[in-house]
Each structure stands twice: as C-alpha cells, then as structure tokens.
C-alpha cells in the first residue's frame, strides 16, 4: 500500500468523526439519527482500522537490511580487530584495531543500523521484529565460516536449525 493510499484512507475516517461530535449537541432522538447516519458511513471504517494489521513489505525489507548490516558490522569488527596482530600492549591493540579500515566500515554499518531499526519499528510489531532480528545470529555464523574461515560444531548447526524453525513459525503466522 502506498503512502498516498494510506493518507486517503485515513481521511475517510474524518467526516464520520466530525459527524459524531455534531451529534453530541443534539437531542437523544437526533443522536439516534446521527448514529444511523454513522452506520451508513461505518462500512468504510473497518478498512481504516485493518490497515494496522496489513503486513508492511517496506518493514520486511528494512528488517532484511538491518540483518545484513549487523552481519557486515560484526565481520568488520572482527577483521579490524584481527588486523591489529598480536604482541602489542592492550592500548596499542585498541588503537590499531580502532583505526583499521575494516573497523571504520563496521562503525558506518552500526551507525546506519539505528535509524533503520527505528524505521522497522515504525512498521512492524516489536514482538515480530525483535525475535526475527535473531536471524542475524545465523547470518553472522555463516559469514564467520565463509569469510573468516572459522569452524562450527554440531551445537552451532542445531542452533541455526532452531532459530530458522522459530523464524519460519513467526513468518508463517504473520503471512496470514
């Protein structure tokens, strides 16, 4: 649903509301008439209220972006921190790691994550978006295998499976 669509539907609700406040000044009989008039307009209202339940595709895409950015950020932090090498003092290590190009890439990703997360929450329920954000655990693990060459045990594989099952259950419900 486009933005202008939404605004025009929100506007549909307004005449009915104005009529309701007019009715407040009338007699009981007049009020009943106003109610009858309201009932004529009401069939259009459920569309306005059901709008909130409509699944927002922009919300899903933004959530996908957030998951990718979170993955890129974590991989970036790891590459930046590893690039500092070993054998330095703590302060030198932090200094080396913080100024590395990969770390700077990770800062940018993290900075972008915040407004994108707020844009997600503008569109999706928190009880939907927050559990689904756990998909980043799966993408980070997969990225650490392929990009960083780390190894995963069978517990990791079970964990990925469990998160994916949970995600599919939640997505399946939201689809209805």
């Amino acid at each position: 649903m486009t933005r202008s669509d939404r605004e025009s539907k929100a506007a549909v609700g307004r005449p009915a509301l104005a009529l309701g406040s007019q009715a407040g000044g009338l007699t009981a009989l007049g009020e009943r008439d106003a109610e009858a008039e309201l009932a004529d307009i009401l069939p259009e209202l459920p569309e306005v209220t059901s709008r909130a339940k409509t699944v927002s595709w922009t919300g899903w895409m933004l959530l996908g972006c957030w998951i990718l950015l979170e993955t890129a950020a974590q991989i970036g932090f790891k590459l930046g921190a590893s690039a500092a090498g070993t054998g330095l003092s703590e302060l030198e290590t932090i200094g080396e790691a913080a100024g590395n190009g990969w770390s700077i890439f990770a800062y940018v990703c993290t900075a972008l994550e915040f407004p994108i997360w707020l844009a997600v929450l503008a569109r999706l329920d928190l009880s939907l978006a927050f559990p689904l954000s756990s998909l980043s655990q799966v993408t980070i693990l997969i990225a650490s295998l392929y990009v960083l060459g780390e190894h995963a045990g069978w517990m990791h594989v079970l964990g990925i499976g469990s998160i994916l099952i949970g995600t599919l259950l939640i997505l399946g419900e939201a689809d209805k």
């Binding site: 329920d125 928190l126 009880s127 939907l128 927050f130 559990p131 756990s134 655990q137 799966v138 693990l141 517990m155 990791h156 079970l158 964990g159 990925i160 499976g161 469990s162 998160i163 994916l164 099952i165 949970g166 995600t167 599919l168 259950l169 939640i170 399946g172 419900e173």
Partner: peptide, 28 residues
C-alpha cells in the same frame, strides 16, 4: 509487547520465540 503495547501474539509466535531462544542458547 503483548501486555503493554497490546500487540496480538498468537500461539505460533510464542512457539517461534521458544525455538529462537533455544537456538541462541545453543549457538551462544
């Protein structure tokens, strides 16, 4: 979210959250 924000959380979402918790515990 369900209690204070009045979001409608159906049984499938609860079960999904339980699987996610299990997955995060296994990975972490």
């Amino acid at each position: 979210s369900s209690w204070l924000l009045k979001e409608r959380v159906h049984s499938r979402r609860w079960i999904g959250v339980a699987f996610i918790v299990l997955g995060v515990v296994l990975i972490g």
